[in-house]
Design a protein around this nucleic acid. Structure first.
Lengths: 333, 333
DNA sequence: ATGGTCTGAAGGAACGTTCCGGCAAACGTG
DNA sequence: CACGTTTGCCGGAACGTTCCTTCAGACCAT
């Protein structure tokens, strides 16, 4: 067995006693071939361990065979994005595409050449220069969540139904919580915007006062502590806190404890973004599962479909969310 | 300006009045060309916005133009790996290589074809089937940290000097802490092994009792709470805790508080793995900066060098660590 | 002048794939 | 049996690069 040189179409053709065209057709399902030939050739190819050369295929097809994944620098470290990346990589691979990480450009304007057929941009942030760069290069983009840039048009989009997600969470809390504070990031992403809007609407509809406290998208425990302290000083009192960002709720529980409030005995605490670390706590925290891995998968699948022409550009998919009720908001404690 | 078709070498050649060979030579620095021609051609290329077709280059050169990045599934969500990935992507791009995420194979044995020239494996875990797969495909591997598999030989390695890192941390604590507990993951990675070994050696050398408590590599607050509770029940008492894993120290402080111990007043707490979330706390936590981004960069650079022949296979680089002293172990509190 | 070396540049093959066109043989229909 | 049509397969061009070979001319020393 001589594995010094990779097996090519020609090698398979010779071994099967046919031409390289026939091998190509047999393996790709194209052309006019009887099932017998197709199977015979396929068997030979498998036998020899043939694996198509991607560079040649890409050159011939005028593609790069890769899609990019981009998220803003500040999101580093959030479990959500890591999980999304894995999902996107899995799905891309299933479509014979490589998933290439696109690093945040350190000095804007000097973007290195991007050799990708398309890009997944997770949580586009208002004003991010990479969005312009991708548009200038005419690289098809699928966004995870909406791009709030005025006039922005992308090839596709997957969005979570955050409005419904937060409503379900609020409904769940409303039984025992009359004064529900929301710790939420700003309106430079559709994520923050939608949640704030839905929260305010829900408050209006149920005749409550909206109590919104700003925390950064990527938030330190310190930020959460401040917001919790401020919330607990609210005139009418607070009996429930919804901490929106990834990783914030743990700190919220901690901060509440320091303020003398016990969860869930005299204060309900829920996270919006769920993560494994919320499950393992002594008092597990209720959260909404916004399915990051599925988000990555769907975005990659959508982009792959658009690139191959199977899915119409402009398609929007909505991802359902699921409330995970845990001890931090349960009556029994 | 007609940008319907990308600019090729031929286009530049025509525009500059030379042959495609000359353009290729001029841009690559190869061949025998006077500086004048080189500059003229380069100018024309820049003018036209020529960017080399990677598929063609890769096909010709017999490469894929990409390197893979792999880490075990369980590490998802750790800030360390996300940061490492970004560093690797940056450096790969600087070497004209794409960084492709290699997802953990869901069913082992059926690995999809990997179209990469080499791979960075961060924290190889004893028994991970991907290591075999890469070896079988003869894909050069640079590991971050050592591969403990007996007989394993890789193309290169970058390792942090954890032994020295933990010693420096212990020396720092030894002024006020006589009974130092170590919360550490197991010995299936060189990371856990080295830290345990160095800790035990240090304890022997300074005449202390070694107090090691197992926590998982990826650890929930729950795990940490248990370990802390157990540690605080140690016969001789405990006056300092070193929590090794990423993200564990915050929970350790929390758990200690619940046991009635205050940090740093009557208990010192330090993390081994540093992360941004340790800095922002009310009582920031002392930790060792093990420079994940630099680790990613170095690994990618080393792999790129080995692939291009500029660096000899078998090269090992050691990354220094730096102790970051913060309030959680400071005398003044 | 003659032969040799060096310089600057060009031609063309090769990398492995896809796909267009073509061409026999088999098959149908009158 | 003659003549279209379909079936099964193949040759070869093209994708854009790199690099090996060639080659004309300039330059030098004899």
């Amino acid at each position: 067995m001589n594995d010094s040189r990779p097996i090519t179409l020609q090698d398979v053709a010779r071994a099967a006693g046919v031409s390289k065209t026939t091998v190509s057709d047999a393996l790709s399902g194209r052309g006019r071939l009887p099932a017998t030939t197709r199977e015979r050739v396929t068997a030979v190819a498998r036998e020899l361990g043939y694996v198509a050369n991607r560079s040649a295929r890409n050159l011939r097809g005028g593609r790069t065979g890769a899609i990019g994944l981009y998220f803003p620098a500040r999101t580093i470290g959030l479990e959500y994005y890591m999980d999304l990346a894995i999902g996107a990589a899995e799905e891309a691979l299933a479509h014979d595409l490589a998933l290439t990480l696109v690093p945040t450009t350190r000095d804007p304007g000097r973007t290195p050449p991007l050799h990708i057929d398309g890009a997944v941009v997770s949580d586009p942030v208002l004003g991010d220069p990479m969005l312009e760069t991708l548009a200038a290069l005419r690289i098809p983009v699928v966004t995870c969540e909406r791009d709030l840039t005025p006039g922005a048009r992308h090839a596709g989009r997957v969005e979570s139904d955050h409005r419904s997600g937060i409503r379900v969470l609020l409904d769940h809390l409303s039984g025992r919580g009359d004064h529900i504070a929301l710790l939420c990031p700003g309106e430079e992403t559709s994520f923050g915007l939608d949640i704030r809007t839905a929260y305010r609407d829900w408050c209006t509809a149920t005749g409550r006062e909206a109590l919104v406290f700003d925390v950064p998208f990527v938030c330190d425990p310190e930020h959460v502590s401040h917001a919790v302290a401020e919330a607990l000083r609210a005139p009418g009192g607070i009996d429930a806190i919804v901490s929106v960002p990834d990783g914030g709720a743990t700190s919220a529980v901690h901060a509440a404890l320091q303020q003398g409030r016990h969860v869930p005995a005299d204060l309900l605490v829920a996270s919006y973004v769920d993560s494994p670390s919320l499950r393992g706590l002594a008092t597990p925290i209720t959260a909404v599962d916004i399915a990051p891995r599925e988000m990555g998968r769907r975005a990659a699948r959508l982009l792959a479909g658009i690139l191959s022409g199977g899915i119409a550009p402009g398609t929007v998919e909505v991802l359902p969310t699921e409330l995970m009720v845990r001890a931090s908001t349960s009556p029994t404690g």
